[in-house]
């Protein structure tokens, strides 16, 4: 099986300071990988470098495209990369307002990616938008409301619907449950888990919440000071951490 994403020695510097460095891994279709670490550990830098929001200073990010097979997305042309990010990739931001158009209705937000790839039939766009609202547990009657009228959890679910409507194969998530209260988080996690299973999505989830990765991620990468310090099966890394930093991280979690 060809990995969906092959990351080879990716590094991103901010001047002399290390954003992230020497990151390599393969992500296979259907695999969900969590990246954990404290603030400033380089996990968001890494995510943005992989998703094409930042240009890595070194390394390759090879994506298995539908038409041409594995291609290095760092060196591919910008139009190609932007096309990938509309069709095969999705990016779920921590703050829904960064990923939504707040002045456009929920239906319009979901429909945008469809229209961006050439869908020109209002009725079918609306039908698919309504279907996706249902799948993220938002009442269809809210289709013409703007996201500013939605709660934080609903905004986040809308963002997810907007991202998944074109059937992407790889989803990047940056703290998808950050800033939501616990009960809303649980609902969102359950939803994400279901969608990941159902659509066979591969995902890379950046979070500092170990409970989130335990529920969602098959495997885990632990970062500290821009370096990957540990990498493995999620429950193994959490239950039998090998690296000093991971042990500290795991033992720091409050038990409920």
């Amino acid at each position: 099986m060809t990995p969906l994403l092959q990351v080879k020695n990716v590094a991103k510097m901010y001047g002399a300071r290390i954003g992230c460095t020497d990151v390599s891994f393969d992500l296979y279709p259907g695999e969900v990988m969590g990246i954990v670490g404290e603030s400033g550990s380089g996990k968001s830098t890494l995510l943005n470098s992989l998703a094409g929001h930042l240009t890595p200073d070194r390394g390759e990010v090879i994506f298995d495209t539908r038409t041409e097979g594995p291609v290095d997305t760092v060196t591919m042309s910008e139009p190609e990369r932007r096309m990938l990010s509309r069709t095969d990739w999705a990016f779920v931001h921590q703050h829904a307002r960064d990923g939504l158009r707040m002045s456009v209705s929920a239906g319009g937000n979901i429909g945008e990616r469809l229209m961006a790839v050439g869908d020109r039939h209002y009725g079918s766009i609306r039908e698919r938008a309504a279907d996706w609202l249902g799948r993220v547990e938002i009442s269809e009657s809210r289709i013409d409301d703007r996201p500013s009228a939605f709660s934080g959890g609903m905004q986040q679910r809308l963002q997810i619907a907007r991202n998944l409507v074109t059937g992407p194969r790889l989803v990047f998530m940056d703290e998808p449950t950050g800033g939501l209260d616990v009960s809303v988080q649980a609902r969102l996690l359950d939803l994400l888990r279901g969608l990941v299973r159902e659509m066979g999505l591969s995902a890379i989830i950046v979070t500092h919440d170990l409970a989130v990765v335990r529920l969602l991620a098959d495997r885990l990468m632990v970062m500290k000071d821009g370096h990957v310090v540990e990498n493995g099966l999620t429950d193994q890394v959490l239950d039998d951490p090998q690296h000093a930093y991971t042990q500290l991280l795991v033992s720091s979690v409050l038990q409920v």
Partner: peptide, 13 residues
């Protein structure tokens, strides 16, 4: 695609 979002909004409203 965004241009059509504007027209979509028109029709929906």
């Amino acid at each position: 695609g965004l241009m059509h979002v504007k027209l979509y909004e028109d029709i929906s409203q």
